[in-house]
Design a binder for these strands. Sequence first.
DNA 1: TAGATTGTTAATCGATTAACAATC
DNA 2: TAGATTGTTAATCGATTAACAATC
Lengths: 209, 209
Amino acid sequence: MNKITNPVIERMSYLYEILRQLEVRQQLRVTSTELGELTGQMATTVRKDIHFIGYKGTFGTRYDVRELRSVIAGRFGFTTVKSACIIGLGALGSALLNHVIAAQEPDLHMVAAFDSNVNRLETIRTTVELYPANRIEEVIARKKIALAIIAVPVVSAQEVVDRCCDGGVSGILNFSPVRVQLKRSDVSIRSFDMSSELRILSARSFLSV
Amino acid sequence: MNKITNPVIERMSYLYEILRQLEVRQQLRVTSTELGELTGQMATTVRKDIHFIGYKGTFGTRYDVRELRSVIAGRFGFTTVKSACIIGLGALGSALLNHVIAAQEPDLHMVAAFDSNVNRLETIRTTVELYPANRIEEVIARKKIALAIIAVPVVSAQEVVDRCCDGGVSGILNFSPVRVQLKRSDVSIRSFDMSSELRILSARSFLSV
DNA sequence: TAGATTGTTAATCGATTAACAATC
DNA sequence: TAGATTGTTAATCGATTAACAATC
C-alpha cells in the first residue's frame, strides 16, 4: 500500500474544504479542471490525488460532489470528532481560543484551556473549562484530547510539548518561535512563527527588486 | 545567475535566526554539522545553501558566525527596516498586533492598524496609529508600508487584499481562511488558516493509526 | 457513434542527499 | 604533514506535469 505523503494530505484537506462549499451551493457534479482552478492545482494533480486515495469516478462523467467529499472525509477522518485544547492564555492564546470557537468547525471540540498563571485563569471569561498548567497531562489523558494548540513563551515551549506528549495528544500546533523536540514519534507537529513569516515575505520582495 | 527558490529562502530565514542566537551566546565559529542539527537540516544542505548565496568559508576551518550572519542579512535584506500594518482588529487581529509589537523585531516597524468599524477604533488602546478601512491605500502609500497582516472576515478578504496591492505593499500575510487573488505579480502572499492546520494534523494521526 | 472527461503511465522537473575532492 | 571541514559534482529521490489510453 502506498503511503500518503504530506503534500497529498495538505491538498486533500483544502479540496475537502472546497467540496464542502460546492455542496452548500448545491452543485452536484464537478470536473477535475474546475477543482484545479478552485484549489490552485493542475487538473492532472487533482485527478492523480483522487485516484491515489482510491476513489473511482466514471469515464466521461464528472465527479459526484457529495460522494467525493464523503469518500475523502472517511479516508482522512475529517468528519471524526476531535477534542482540542489551548495552552497559554496570553493575548495570542486567548485570541486563538475565541477564534477556534467562533469558527464553529463541527468536527472540532475545544474542551480545555491551560495557563500557568492562576490569577489569569480567574479573570478570563469563556465557556471552556480552565485549568492550571500543572494539570496538562492529567486533563489531556482523561478527556482524550487529540490536539493541543501551544501559545506559551519560548522558555516554556519545550516543557509544555513534553507534557502534551505524555498526556497523549496526537497533534500539536505550535505558535512559539522555537524548534521543539518530540519525545514520541507518533505525535506530529506544525509550527507557525509570525516573525519568520514576515521575514520570508520581505526577503522575497527584497530578492526580486 | 541562479534564482533563489522558496525552500532556500525559508531555510535561510531560519538559519539567520539561529546565527543571531549563536551571536548572542558569543559563539564565534560553527560547523555545517552543528548548523544542521540546530536547523533540522542535513549538514550538506546547509553547506549547499551557504555556497549558493555566494559566501565562501575556508577549507578545514569553521564558519565565522558574525560574518556569515551579516552576509545572509545583506543578501536577503533581513536587517533592512520594513514597515508593517494590521488590517482587521477583531480578537485575532488585536492579538496579532500586540504579538508583533511584543516580539520587538528590530527590523520591523508596526506603523498602522485598520478596521472598518469606527466604534472599535475608538475603544482600542495601542501605541500604533489607527485608521478606518477606507484609508488603506492612502496610508499604505503615504507611509510606504511593505507588509500587511490581514485578519478580516472571509467576505472582506479579497477586497482588502486588492486595496493593499493598490496601496503598494510587497507582502501580505493572510489569516482569512480563503484563497485570494493577487492583482499584481510583484506582491507575494503567505496564508495561515487555523482550521486547515488542525485538520491536517488530525489527518496525519488518523492515517497512521 | 462522437464527445467528454476520467484513469494511469511516462517524462520532466526540482530538491535533497551522498560522495569525495579541495585545501586550510 | 595529517586532520578537519568546506566546496562542488553526481546520484537519488520525490513530486509535478504531460500525454494519451480508456470508456461511459
